[in-house]
Nucleic acid binder design. Structure first.
Lengths: 259, 259
DNA sequence: CTCATAAAGTGAACCGTATTCATAATTCAC
DNA sequence: GTGAATTATGAATACGGTTCACTTTATGAG
């Protein structure tokens, strides 16, 4: 009989209901002020019911993180599977993650939180593994692009292991996200568009470090065209304003540089 | 009269006392379990006294962060002011920060925390500014190295603003730290020594992207020699074990690469 | 339809801890 | 020495995560 299946489905649906409600509350008020009772109430359930799905507040946070990670990965996968030279795929992957982080700053912060401290708390091992597993495909995507590039002769691995290159490449993206989202840091440096910086330097990284041939390097014009193309071709569900912002054509002067 | 000065000095001393006690408690039990009452008690003061120095728990966390940041900056400054080519100074800066993060993982996590969520809470604006200010010199140091390199003809800025290059360079370091400290992620990828990866890729970044001339690129041998030299020359207070670990001579095979 | 059983839902009570504040102790200027 | 100002105190309060004894609902056999 289908009773069991229906029960399981309802369980999953309610779990998603809680996840969405919690995410909404976070996006309104921040991580630390998330209140379990409010989450439950906003779904017309009692506190206890929420605790039948998530063993603790931290467990809930990890579940949100894992849930959102799947969407993030899906976004990046679209870029990684683009029909294009591996260098451009790598760039598209960075753009995709940038767009995602811009759209979902809460998810970025939550991931930071989860990956630094919350992991040692009271969440179940199952949840912790789920978070790790949800993020694994990112590494796989990057690795795949690098490997494809090496196979196609586009990438000079210079004797390094593809994984090392992939991690190095991705580390820069993560670091950029961190700098962008570290409230007040880049603002104080008068950087008008941090993501512009990410794109520009990311492209330079690809230009200079590993990708061959270099006859057709990214320049500012090619960069903007590519960003526009990526946004329109791969991510047409991103609103024009965001694509426009990302591909902002006129060069942004960087003022107030130290010394 | 010197009464006022003495008072202020005593105030600062007691503040430091609390900061040290709190840091000790964090390093033993993690961020989230820090208890205000315990911090006060461990200094033989009552809870209320602690609250005369720090308006909230979060305020205390930010103060710790700012306090530690000064030590971190001091470490990096030693590397940045090294008498060496700018490329090597930049590399030394990365090594310095790596050694610091390895020694003070709590500070790294605290900074992550503070820079993502805690900043929106109940800490005073004064504290928030202090944290930003404490970190500003890092950007200045990196910028200075880049500028010096351009002046000396060592660096090809390729038309980019020095600040952009500096931030890009530093972003990679931050990203690497994050990946190293994201418990379980790199372990699952069977990366034997994440910091080895940071050094290797950081060097590759310097080799290929901006630094000229390239006639003398880092290779594995030069890399190890340089790390050893940096550790012994600039950071002799770092214990041999750590320097050794950072400069581990035999190439670490990376196993279990995806696909 | 009825009933026994299980499953799901409830929210008041519990508990730990951040924060406050009325009071006490101390210091200081004169 | 004295009164005002400053500093220290810790019991009381507030808040929110977590629990659990109980209620309600769903199930399916007879």
């Amino acid at each position: 009989m289908g009773t069991r299946e229906r029960r399981l489905r309802e369980l999953a649906e309610r779990e998603q209901l809680f996840l969405d409600a919690a995410r909404e509350q976070i996006s309104g008020q921040g991580l630390l002020t998330l209140q379990m009772a409010k989450v439950a109430r906003s779904c017309d359930y009692a506190t206890g019911t929420l605790y039948q799905h998530f063993s603790s507040k931290e467990d809930l946070l990890l579940a949100i993180c894992a849930d959102q990670a799947e969407k993030r990965v899906a976004t990046m996968a679209r870029a990684a599977h683009w029909e294009a030279p591996s260098r451009d795929r790598m760039f598209a992957l960075m753009v995709a993650d940038m767009l995602f982080a811009e759209r979902h700053p809460d998810h970025y912060r939550l991931t930071q939180y989860v990956f630094t401290e919350a992991v040692w708390g009271s969440a179940s091992q199952r949840r912790r593994d789920a978070v790790i597993e949800a993020h694994r495909p990112i590494g796989d995507l990057v690795s795949q692009i690098v490997t494809d590039g090496i196979d196609a002769g586009d990438v000079d691995s210079r004797g390094r292991h593809p994984l090392e290159m992939a991690l190095g490449q991705y580390a820069m993206t993560i670091g950029m996200h961190h700098m962008v989202h570290a409230e007040g840091v880049l603002e104080k440096e008068n950087v008008p568009d941090p993501y512009r910086l990410l794109l520009s330097h990311g492209a330079a990284h690809l230009n200079g470090l590993n990708w061959q041939p270099l006859q057709d390097p990214f320049d500012d014009v090619a960069l903007d065209a590519l960003v526009t193309r990526i946004c329109s071709t791969l991510f047409d569900d991103f609103r024009p304003a965001e694509a426009e912002r990302a591909a902002q054509p006129e060069a942004q002067p960087i003022e107030g540089a130290p010394q």
